[in-house]
Simulated assay, not measured.
Amino acid sequence: MCAKDVKYRKIEEDIIEAIKEGRLRPGDRIDSESVLKQRYGVSTITVRRAFSDLISQGYLNGVQGVGTFVAKKQMIRALTSISFSEELLEQKYVIDLYVDAIEEIIDKRISGALDIPPEQSVIRVKRVRMANEEPVAYHISYIDSRILSLKQAQEIYERKSFYKTLDAMGRKPTWAVENYSVRDVTDAHISELMGIPKGNSAFFIKRTAYNDEDKVVEYSETYFHKDWYSVNVTIKI
């Protein structure tokens, strides 16, 4: 192994160690190339190779013209649970929920998605899912008011979970169909709550959730912050 290899790996090892020990946290800016060149007595090429390796390994993110930063740990969905909060807990995240609004509405489009009469009122629950004190997703859930009344929905404030509230009433869905796409965030309010510049893209998921009798329980639309979200799918042949 040549001296140059040792030097770029030393830079990598030191940065990884600082991340694992918490001295560098997600979003922190890494010292510039010039600072690291002087500290380690190496060339620009050596520092850039270390950065390139750490970016490819998911430790760092490079922003052209701005700098290099510690990457955020993505929440990787394995689609093992119908509850998003349960998946976050399984991955050791500290979770919280900010309830944006709970209201009763009439909406023909939503009634169609829920397979209920168009004149039937619907409970709409808007909320922000937090992970490690950062916004990960903006959920908008719709449910027939005959399944969950406006008064019952208020329990979401205390339980900090839409599905825990349904489960406590014996109405939690058991399976779901999801449609994934990418959509620009055009709503200024959602943009502000999610920390996503208006007009920027996010993962957009439409979900229809069913009970054991294959009846629709919930229809939802969710914006996931793309810096925090990815999906793993296992396919057996």
Rank of each mutant, 00 (worst) to 15 (best):
A71W: 00
P26F: 08
E13C: 04
D100H: 10
T44K: 10
R183S: 09
V231N: 03
E33N: 13
M194Y: 00
D144K: 00
D31W: 15
I102Y: 00
L97F: 06
D184A: 13
P26M: 11
S43V: 06
Q64T: 15
M194A: 02
L193W: 06
I102M: 03
V128Y: 00
S161H: 00
E133L: 14
T234Y: 11
S43D: 01
I123F: 06
Y98R: 11
Y219M: 06
K172S: 11
M194Q: 05
L166I: 05
E21W: 11
P118L: 13
A78Y: 14
A71E: 03
V217H: 04
Y93N: 10
Y210D: 09
V125I: 07
K126W: 12
K108H: 12
G22I: 07
A131Q: 07
I140E: 07
I196E: 02
V122Y: 00
A71G: 04
I235Y: 01
T208R: 08
S191F: 01
E221K: 01
A153H: 02
S220R: 03
L150C: 03
V94G: 13
A168C: 14
K226V: 14
P117F: 05
N61K: 14
Q154I: 08
S141G: 06
M130H: 15
N232C: 13
R77D: 04
E218T: 04
R77L: 09
Y223F: 10
D28N: 04
F224Y: 09
T165W: 09
V6W: 12
R129V: 12
A188V: 07
A209Y: 05
R109T: 15
K215R: 07
P173R: 00
F51K: 03
M75C: 15
D53H: 12
H139Q: 09
K160C: 11
K151W: 11
R39E: 15
I140H: 04
V35S: 07
T46I: 09
T208M: 13
K4R: 12
H189V: 10
L148T: 01
R49Q: 08
S191G: 03
E12F: 06
S201C: 14
T234L: 11
Y138V: 07
I237M: 15
Q152S: 12
V42W: 02
E17R: 15
A137Q: 08
T222Q: 00
L114R: 02
E133Q: 15
K10A: 06
E12A: 13
G67M: 00
I196L: 03
E221G: 01
D227W: 11
K7D: 15
V233H: 12
R109V: 12
D187T: 05
V216T: 05
I143C: 03
S56T: 09
Q57R: 10
M130V: 13
E158P: 07
V231W: 01
L79T: 05
A168G: 08
D100L: 05
P117A: 02
S85N: 10
A153E: 02
I76E: 10
E133A: 13
S81H: 07
D28A: 04
F51I: 10
L54N: 06
D227M: 13
R49F: 06
D100Y: 09
Q64S: 11
V42F: 01
N232P: 12
D214N: 09
V233D: 14
Y157N: 09
I82Q: 06
I105M: 11
I237L: 15
D144W: 01
S191R: 04
G58I: 02
V217W: 00
P135A: 04
E155S: 07
